[in-house]
Design a protein around this nucleic acid. Sequence first.
DNA 1: TTGTATGCGTTATCAA
DNA 2: TTGATAACGCATACAA
Lengths: 346, 346
Amino acid sequence: MVRIKDVAEKANVSTATVSHVINNTGKISKETQKKVQKVIKELNYQPNRIAKSLKLKKTNTIGVIVEDITVFNAPEIIDGINKYADEHGWSIIMTNMRLNQLYGNKSERDEMCVIHAPKAAQELVNKQVDGILYIGVHARDMSGIMPKIKIPIVYTYCYTSEENGCYVNYNDEQTAYNATKYLIESGHKKIAIISGLINSYPSRKRFDGYYKALSDYNLVFNPEYVKTGDWEYESGYTQGKLLLQSKEPPTAILGMNDLMAAGAMKGCRELGLAIPDDLSVMGIDDREMSFFLNPSLTTMKIPLTQMGRLSMVILDKLVKGEKVEKPDLLGCKLVVRESVGPPPSN
Amino acid sequence: MVRIKDVAEKANVSTATVSHVINNTGKISKETQKKVQKVIKELNYQPNRIAKSLKLKKTNTIGVIVEDITVFNAPEIIDGINKYADEHGWSIIMTNMRLNQLYGNKSERDEMCVIHAPKAAQELVNKQVDGILYIGVHARDMSGIMPKIKIPIVYTYCYTSEENGCYVNYNDEQTAYNATKYLIESGHKKIAIISGLINSYPSRKRFDGYYKALSDYNLVFNPEYVKTGDWEYESGYTQGKLLLQSKEPPTAILGMNDLMAAGAMKGCRELGLAIPDDLSVMGIDDREMSFFLNPSLTTMKIPLTQMGRLSMVILDKLVKGEKVEKPDLLGCKLVVRESVGPPPSN
DNA sequence: TTGTATGCGTTATCAA
DNA sequence: TTGATAACGCATACAA
């Protein structure tokens, strides 16, 4: 390893001078600058970032804690983070807690998170990161889980009700509202919804949006048209079938996510119904698979990249000690594909 | 920030003693140990990893360079890396070069990689990582791109022909061979293949496997049954349709990846053919979407997690100065779903 | 068994 | 415009 000292000796100057020409601090004569730069090239000197960080008490690094990188939302959020980080000179240390891999998509996962997350945060603090970005696997309250640390934390794809807590999320209610609205404007009056786990925040909010849309458009709310799944494909299949086998089946089904919508489509197929001729189906998420379903799934796209980027924008400010106000919830965009049409005319 | 010195003062011992009880080095009396540990708890002392790294010239950190984290192979490979890293006390710094996001899925991407990759590697070296893991977006030769650095690099989902270069990959030829074999054993004799870009290594190897399987099973090789796509959905659609509209259409199509196989399925649907009754289709990759196609796609699963893990196993040894021999190419597992059946009987 | 003192590679203060 | 030197927080050789 070639140190600043080696450069200084070879260039016949002091380490202070070398440091100055590297960082453009202090007044150094053109000649000395040239001389030093030449030696730097010759020796291929590269500053040791560890030593620099120790001295500066600043790493220019953001720690990203992701609950599970194999979950569909993670890569794009991280991409958004990286985009901003690249543009603004931030480095990223990533901690993938592997929660889904370790505990599956079960309640145990959230319980264990309480153990893993503080550890991960503390480790990052020990590495002197300047701030922490936390990416959840599903939207829930993270309040009180993290240890008291002196660097800012921004949450995304989850939220916090802590006093100065900061999070970036999308608008569940608005999204479900707009989805339902699209179905209504396509002519549907009998619109069913397959909910995610009933005790989850997004399920409640999305239901609110669904309900409000019905209400705004003067459609009767039929409790028979609300079924509860667990966000998974299988539950969409089961609940979808139930819906379609009822006395007065709906003409449209809104899955609270793409997976359950896909399950409902399978159920529909099994009953010999055609989509969208006999039944319209819609999802939320716009995962990759929704494009490949047959027919392709009309859905609401979660602005993942934007969420990652906005999280970094806010964290950047927080790290610099600037005051930030809580950001608005982001909107989801309607992605029109083939699975929604007018209701059957009979 | 509470330093080792603060602990030492409060416990009325020297910093050396504190350091010793923390790291279990040297002989310290039980009492002193207890006393020090008590103070550590009280002060909630956490060692500064930056200072430690500077002193030890070792960061216990692996730098992971991923060409693009939004590409389907990345998350699982990273998961495999994290799994091993967690179990063996390695930290991970991730550099996502965002190649696909910046340049798209075009040749420009590979050209620009030559600019980005050495920079990323040098940055990681400056951060004193102990080794580097490189994850490609598609399998190609990375020889000569990286700068000469003194820490080991292991490549995965790409390869290198450099003298001491080390990479972890799966066996393209064997995979295509087994896929073709499965089609043959399902009764097919007229098996077409849709190739990826013709100048790519995986395309050549997969073709070799296809050819060898035909040959081993005494089937005639018909050049009409070889079409060239570009790995994308659209090309599978176009080439698949071409294949099906020929005078003597194949009874089975092997897409060199799931995307092209999915495209071929779409073409097939448009021509009013049923899968698998009229045509069998098979892919390679086992991306998430292959499960959601209708019918679901029979395909070959790339062992991504295992690739990530094995890369870390090897890098770990390399970092420790152990000699490693080049690992065997990993096998892909057949995933039987609905898209393959016996050929039509007519 | 414990303490003193040095150095890891930087930056920055202050003196020259 | 430059240089000598003291930190940053830690681990460790060596002394006690």
